[in-house]
Design a binder for these strands. Structure first.
Length: 380
DNA sequence: TCTGGGGTCCTAGGACCC
DNA sequence: TCTGGGGTCCTAGGACCC
């Protein structure tokens, strides 16, 4: 067998406390001597921590923790909002550097991505080190890098590398490397998944390896079973994608400073949300067939209703008509205070796919070309 | 302490069709 | 007369990721 393909060379690159680093770069004077830094929402507006400095982590602050709680733990900490503009700019700068080294680059969020490297004799650690230096010199952002023959192994390696470190798993060592982790360290194995496994006596990767695929399928359903069976064995054939996947949904939601009951206030909020999603939809040149409205009560119970329209639409008034109806139905089923309101669009159709799906001579159109040309946004 | 916002994917039941 | 099975679409809810 001379044609055996060489092992893939994949890096997982993850910026350390990215929003924090960007905040320091954005407000250098203000934050010069600040060690305890919290970046996120306003504590009095029910905000949460998006990122915090390592000093704050040592004190017990975690991301997604309510900002009010973080400030109680660290009263002397400085809290700043997420500098979204700088975050996006820095993210593009980092990606541009990574792109020079990668055969393919898949950014999975603003601060994290996978790079498929071209074939080479250079050890993976050395490429990773060169990338790390280049990123820091050119963008002032420090990243941690994990390397291996799959995305799974590269990602797990990154957590061994943090902060600002490198960790590469050599080909052939994947099975043992994965075996050194806890089940909950595996991607997509969250609290609910862990509970399901633990109640069946599976509390470790070692234990999970002893359960055959059929049993796992009965326990967990086909998707999670296949995923777990493969992952505990370090089997991951997922490709580093070029990142040109089409969008599947667009949504906007808002948590109110104080819970709302007033129907007019809710109606205003709904209009704003429809304006947001409508604008995003048109910006990418898509149309949507399904409209979803979601509410969250003070008890944190989410309710949603959605409706699929006969045609894909793009104008605010048409979206709003559906959203209004859905909100009314949600309120009838469950009156009372609303903590969060959200609007989502799905069943998206890209340019060129909608003409053949509509039959204006049979089904009356929900929007006319005049509506679309007028852009028919709210408030006009 | 009191819990954000933007996504993707999966499951399950029911309707409907063949 | 009583009973199939498969496929697709829609809807609601939930898990998980960053």
């Amino acid at each position: 067998m001379s044609s055996e393909t060489p092992p893939r060379r994949i890096l997982h690159i993850d910026a350390d406390a990215f929003y924090c680093q960007v905040a320091y770069l954005t407000w250098p004077e203000k934050l010069a001597d600040v060690e305890l830094l919290l970046v996120g929402g306003h504590p009095e507006k029910r905000g949460v921590v998006a990122s915090c400095s390592y000093a704050a982590r040592k004190r017990g602050v975690r991301s997604a923790m309510p900002m009010a709680m973080a400030l109680r733990i660290c009263p002397e900490a400085v809290a700043v909002p997420v500098p979204w503009g700088s975050v996006r700019r820095k993210s593009r700068e980092v990606a541009a550097v990574l792109g020079r080294f990668a055969e393919r680059l898949e950014m999975v969020s603003v601060d994290e991505g996978y790079a498929l490297l071209p074939e080479s004799d250079e050890p993976l650690e050395e490429v990773a080190r060169r990338i790390q230096r280049a990123v820091e010199e050119e963008t002032r952002i420090t990243v941690s890098i994990g390397g291996g023959t799959s995305k799974l192994v590269a990602k797990l390696a990154t957590s061994r590398a943090k902060p600002a470190g490198l960790f590469a798993v050599p080909p052939g060592a994947e099975y043992d490397f994965v075996g050194t982790h806890a089940l909950g360290d595996l991607p997509y194995v969250g609290p609910a998944f862990l509970r399901d496994l633990e109640k069946r006596g599976v509390g470790s990767i070692e234990a999970a390896r002893r359960i055959d695929l059929n049993t796992l399928t009965l326990w967990l359903g086909p998707a999670r079973a296949r995923y777990l069976w493969a992952t505990v064995r370090a089997v991951d054939r997922a490709e580093v994608s070029a990142g040109d996947e089409p969008r599947k949904s667009i949504s906007s939601e808002t948590t109110f400073e104080r819970d709302l009951v007033d129907p007019h206030a809710l109606e205003d909020a709904l209009k704003n949300l429809v304006g947001d999603v409508g604008q995003s939809l048109r910006k990418i040149g898509y149309r949507a067939r399904t409209v979803t409205v979601k509410t969250r009560g003070p008890d944190f119970q989410d309710r949603q209703k959605n409706r699929t329209l006969p045609q894909a639409v793009e104008t605010d008034p048409v979206i709003l008509r559906a959203a209004d109806e859905l909100l009314r139905e949600l309120r009838e089923a469950r009156p009372g205070p609303v903590r969060l309101l959200g609007v989502g669009l799905s069943n998206l159709e890209g340019p060129g796919t909608w003409e053949q799906l509509t039959f204006p001579e049979i089904v009356p159109p929900l929007e006319t070309d005049e509506d679309r040309r007028a852009r028919a946004e709210l408030g006009e």
